[in-house]
Simulated assay, not measured.
Amino acid sequence: MRESAMGRRRAVAVMLALELLLIGLGVGVAWGAGGAGDAPRRPVAGVPGPDFVDMNAVRSGAADPATSPPPAGAGSYTWDCGRNEIGHRNTANVVTAPGYPGQAHHVHDYVGNVSTAVESTPRSLAGAPTTCRNGDRSTYYWPVLRTVPGGDGGSGHPGHDGEIQVPAAVTLTFLGNPSGNVVPMPARLAGTVGDAVAVTNGGAHAVATWTCSSTAERRTTAYPVCPVGDRVLRIFDFPSCWDGRRVDSENHREHLLFATRSGACPHNTFPVPRLRMTLAYDLPPGVRFQIDAFDGQRNSPLTDHAFFLNLMPESVTARVVACLNAGRTCHDG
């Protein structure tokens, strides 16, 4: 037993010596961030921080709902709202905190409605211009992504002084339901995916949003280290089972639920088009990046999240529903 203990101590000493050697040589060593479908927690050479994981080591086909969203129906409807080329950003959240400016170091990117701001109301948004080519006045938003070449810039909020990365592409797609026809989304329906305070909130609503362009079938709750030439992807699959009564709820989740693993909706809910937002970023190899986050959340990838507020005109909604229920692949704008 004494020899076994001595052996363990030798192994630890060897590991520490190896880590110190790698650091001395300038080789990054990080522990995988973990999460369903992620690689085991082990040192990965070249990974820029503890919240990163090499996507080549992330397995596919995991059973956890966070890593493999429910199957979609045969139909899909894709439309173009740009990629926020106009630089529409602020700290507002018209779904969870209308009328409040939010924390200065938690900035959102927007596509769609160009007037979304602290003072916005559903009525003001309904009359505003949009970046969507099909006339969709809905607002779609998510925390900005920043590159962080080193340190926290003296702000006390690491990552918040980094350069904001405009997505190279933003793809909005509605997907059908494999169990039956979808019904139209009501006007002003609010949708939430992910949890901005997952680190201190237990992580129950955290979702795996991160991947790379060549590994899109895999998802991780960690920031991905992608193969050279790949784009970093953030994929948000929103819930799509509406209770038929409310357009929002106290926790912004109970009125719009996720489908089961088979794609069926829970009892007393109705399938609406399932929104998938895919954000693609062109980032230099080895660069460290983070999303904006609230105090106490460590800029963790677990806190990735997104929102929408539906203000799609009825004529466009009718096209969406007809396309999905007919099983067609449609592109509008």
Rank of each mutant, 00 (worst) to 15 (best):
L189N: 13
L189R: 15
L189H: 15
A190M: 10
A190H: 02
A190F: 03
A190P: 00
G191P: 04
T192V: 11
T192C: 06
T192D: 03
T192R: 13
T192S: 08
V193I: 15
V193P: 05
V193F: 08
G194T: 03
G194I: 07
G194N: 02
D195P: 08
D195F: 09
D195K: 08
D195V: 06
D195L: 08
D195I: 06
A196N: 03
A196P: 00
A196I: 04
V197C: 02
V197H: 12
V197T: 13
A198V: 05
A198T: 03
V199Q: 09
V199W: 10
V199G: 02
V199T: 12
V199P: 07
V199S: 04
V199L: 11
T200P: 08
T200G: 01
T200I: 10
T200E: 10
T200V: 10
T200W: 07
N201E: 04
N201V: 06
N201H: 14
N201R: 13
G202C: 11
G202M: 11
G202Q: 10
G202E: 11
G202A: 10
G203V: 06
G203K: 07
G203M: 08
G203T: 09
A204H: 13
A204R: 15
A204L: 13
A204Y: 11
H205W: 14
H205I: 02
H205N: 12
H205Y: 14
H205C: 00
H205S: 07
H205R: 14
H205L: 10
H205K: 13
A206Q: 01
A206F: 03
V207A: 12
V207Q: 15
V207F: 09
A208N: 13
A208H: 09
A208Y: 08
A208S: 15
T209N: 11
T209M: 14
W210N: 07
W210I: 00
W210C: 04
W210G: 01
T211K: 05
T211N: 10
C212G: 11
C212P: 14
S213F: 09
S213D: 12
T215D: 06
A216F: 14
A216P: 14
A216D: 15
E217C: 04
E217T: 14
E217N: 14
E217H: 11
R218L: 02
R218H: 01
R218P: 00
R219S: 11
T220M: 04
T220I: 05
T220C: 05
T221V: 06
T221G: 05
T221S: 07
A222C: 09
A222Y: 09
Y223I: 00
Y223N: 00
Y223C: 01
P224G: 04
P224W: 09
P224C: 07
